[in-house]
Design a protein around this nucleic acid. Sequence first.
RNA 1: GCCCCGCUAGCUCAGUGGAUAGAGCAUCUGUCUUCUAAACAGAGGGUCGGGGGUUCGAAUCCCUCGCGGGGCACCA
Length: 547
Amino acid sequence: MAFVLSGGVRGTIQEALVEAVRKLGVEGQIPDLELGRAKVAGHGDYASSAGLKLGRVLRQDPKLIAARLAESVAVPDGAAKAEADGGYVNFRFTDDWLQRLVARIQPGYGARDIGRGERLQVEFASINPTGPLHIGHGRGTILGDSICRVLEFTGHDVQREYYVNSDNSQTRRFGASVYARLHGEEPPEGGYTGDYVTELAEMARHDLPGIDQLPEAEAEPKLRMYALGKMVDRIKASVARLNIRYDEWFWENRLWESGLPQTAIERLREAGYLKEKDGALWFGDPEDVEEEDRVVIRSNGQPTYFASDLGYLLSRFDVRGYNKVVEVWGADHHGYVPRMKSAAAALGIDPQKLVIILHQMVNLKEGKMSKRAGRFVTLDELVDRVGSDAVRYFYLLRSPDTTIEFDLELAVTQGNENPVYYAQYAHARLSNVEITATERHPRLPERADVSLLTQPWELDVARQLAFWPDVVEDATTTLEPHRIPYYVHELATAVHRFYHAGNAQSEHRVVVDDPELTRARLELCRAARHTLKTALDLIGVSAPERM
RNA sequence: GCCCCGCUAGCUCAGUGGAUAGAGCAUCUGUCUUCUAAACAGAGGGUCGGGGGUUCGAAUCCCUCGCGGGGCACCA
């Protein structure tokens, strides 16, 4: 179904420009010509500061260089015309090419084969399954899911994984809390106090006959695994409401059963990365004195989570053979990045293949999230209040680098006025007008004469469509899906203007008496609708046919 | 003390070293008997945190200071 174009028109123009630069006699490395979207309408659609960039290399007047480039550059397919303006070379789409583009757009427009089938894993939002997801967790899940969607769209073979912690101190404390509730006691210091823990204990009493007869050392691991399993089910349900799925829920205990952490430790020992100190086993790069040593096995013999992570690296790169792993972490883990990178290197894994995306935190406006202080908003509650589409759009409109100060009342208000509806409404309008057209004109020409699309607002829609492959490419290379909702908004604006032209003057409606003209405008609607749908899909937002 | 992120319009935020810094919300003014007004057209609103520097050109790169958020465990 994916309709694969060779690449965006930006890439085509870039190549043509480079070729023109070669013709001027520039050899070797060509500086970045800064080809990008023109910011002012008078400067065309794409602009390059090629003249200024080459001024020094060629020791010539930038204006002259730009003029010569504009003269000689030949954009394939007549897609754009070049003109020099000072030291800049500006490119403007030709009407003819924009019209032809409209006819070429199919469902899935913008799909690219950037990944060439590269097998990669995206591991995201692997929260300790010891409680319900809250609004902070929403960010990583939505970001990670959207990254997967973008990567899949650009020819990557993506596996979506949730790493289920089951053997760390948090989950042990969780198991101990369930054990305490099973025996009618208060959870231990630092344990889990929510009502759901008591409910889990009661469920375990029913599902695990005899569990309350076992001593804690035997009962806790059983209760822990049972309760974690139940919590994982709840997390699955919560993320499913946000249109998120995982391929694999990978349990930490599987690592130890398969002996991978042990193998990793052995490998590090042989390579000289481990040492004993104070009765514990430490990891450290003997070459790197800056990075502090880290405990792998505690003096009490219990491994740290870091030991599991060593095995987890082997599981993914060696055993399962992923060429690249993308991890999505909250910024509170950023200090762990260098350690994971150096661990990977020590295990013989290229650290470049471990890509770690950090997103900043979501803080409640009233203060740090705390169940005890009554400052806690679950992801489910947020979805209940504003709906999945608005939640996803809300998170994805922000760059991962921005801290979110979360205000539930504001989020609900913004939910009702969320810009997501603006985009969805554009899609619904297009769908509706296509239905109206077929009712009014049961027999329309099979082929559209796109040369009839001459109004500026019609060409502006086509212009936005031309930019879509660039957005896809940029979102892929930067792993920044937030670029997509901003594009969606621009496209929706062009669509609304186009539609509204018909409200102002009826001869500009899509559906008019002339079947040829109707057919041509319908072609534009179809192209815009496919593109909106495709873009919304990539951010996991629905594209309703009526609103 | 060290490390990471941020500081852009009243608010929430975009902004690959390029030309005149943008959007949504809010405020104000217009536009529906005819394909969906959840829309469209327009107006006001800016020392891009402060100060240095690099550059033909800086919101963007470097240094420095300030403010806010997050980290610096035999927690995860």
